[in-house]
């Protein structure tokens, strides 16, 4: 059960941490329409995380809740991939990060519709639709910015370079994920590569962007080995909850 729990926590942490990052934009976006769109995307991901945390807590069977999972684990216990914790940077970086994540998660959740696990299938049904929309939304921005002004094209290229090291980790399965994949509970991560390449190549073509070649790929998130940004996310996110142990909100 611990193994499945860790595999579920990886997915939950990815969604919560990226949902948190995107929520940092709320009230500070370039146009009002994006002030509305970004909380929406954030809500999709936090919603997915909540169901998965509740499931992980259920698997542990110690009376824990979704909030215990989110608020009472430290940096080394968080299992998200490195891509989702990357700082927002500028709007180009945020949109590219969202595109990379959604272009992975959409086929992943589609495949998870065939999971042997009821909860995973349930999450997948909703999340696959949401991720298809995120691809469309973020993809359209990547195209606009890549093929917009000289400045926006320059920023988009910088974002491609900056995020390139964090792509490969999406396709790597930890020992926990492999066990869940072997049991037919979760889809095989490496199998999403072709669909991801197809989505990104199509959008990059329209955005006049070239994929980054020859990058050193970073990894470690699934072992709780993160960059320095995650600690600050958790420090902020968990502060009130941890200041009042046992309180109900």
């Amino acid at each position: 059960m611990m193994i499945l729990q860790n595999a579920i926590l990886e997915l939950a942490d990815d969604n919560l941490i990226l949902g948190h990052r995107v929520s940092e934009w709320c009230g500070h976006a370039p146009i009002l329409e994006e002030d509305l769109a970004m909380p929406n995307m954030s809500l999709d991901m936090i919603g997915t995380a909540r169901t998965l945390y509740a499931y992980a807590a259920h698997l542990e069977n110690k009376g824990q809740t979704e909030d215990d999972m989110a608020y009472l684990r430290d940096e080394r216990e968080y299992l998200n991939c490195l891509l989702v914790e990357r700082p927002n940077g500028d709007f180009a970086t945020t949109m590219l990060r969202q595109l990379y994540f959604a272009a992975f998660m959409e086929p992943y959740w589609q495949a998870a519709l065939n999971s042997t696990d009821d909860v995973v299938r349930g999450v997948a049904g909703k999340a696959a639709k949401e991720m298809a929309y995120h691809i469309r939304h973020a993809g359209e921005w990547v195209i606009r910015l890549g093929d917009g002004t000289d400045e926006s094209a320059r920023r988009m290229k910088t974002a491609v370079t900056d995020l390139a090291p964090y792509v490969d980790e999406l396709f790597q399965s930890s020992a926990a994920a492999k066990a869940a994949e072997d049991a037919g509970i979760l889809p095989v991560r490496a199998d999403m590569r072709a669909a991801w390449d197809k989505t990104i190549n199509h959008i990059f073509g329209l955005a006049m962007l070239n994929p980054q070649e020859d990058t050193f790929a970073q990894s470690g998130g699934r072992q709780g080995l993160h960059g320095e940004g995650l600690g600050h996310i958790l420090a902020v996110m968990q502060s009130i909850n941890r200041a009042h142990p046992g309180a109900v909100w």
Partner: peptide
């Protein structure tokens, strides 16, 4: 307080409210 909401339920509700 979006990034500090003390529970996930409150975080989601606050985000939706500000939206």
């Amino acid at each position: 307080f979006i990034t500090r909401a003390p529970s996930l339920k409150r975080k989601a509700a606050l985000l939706a409210k500000v939206q």
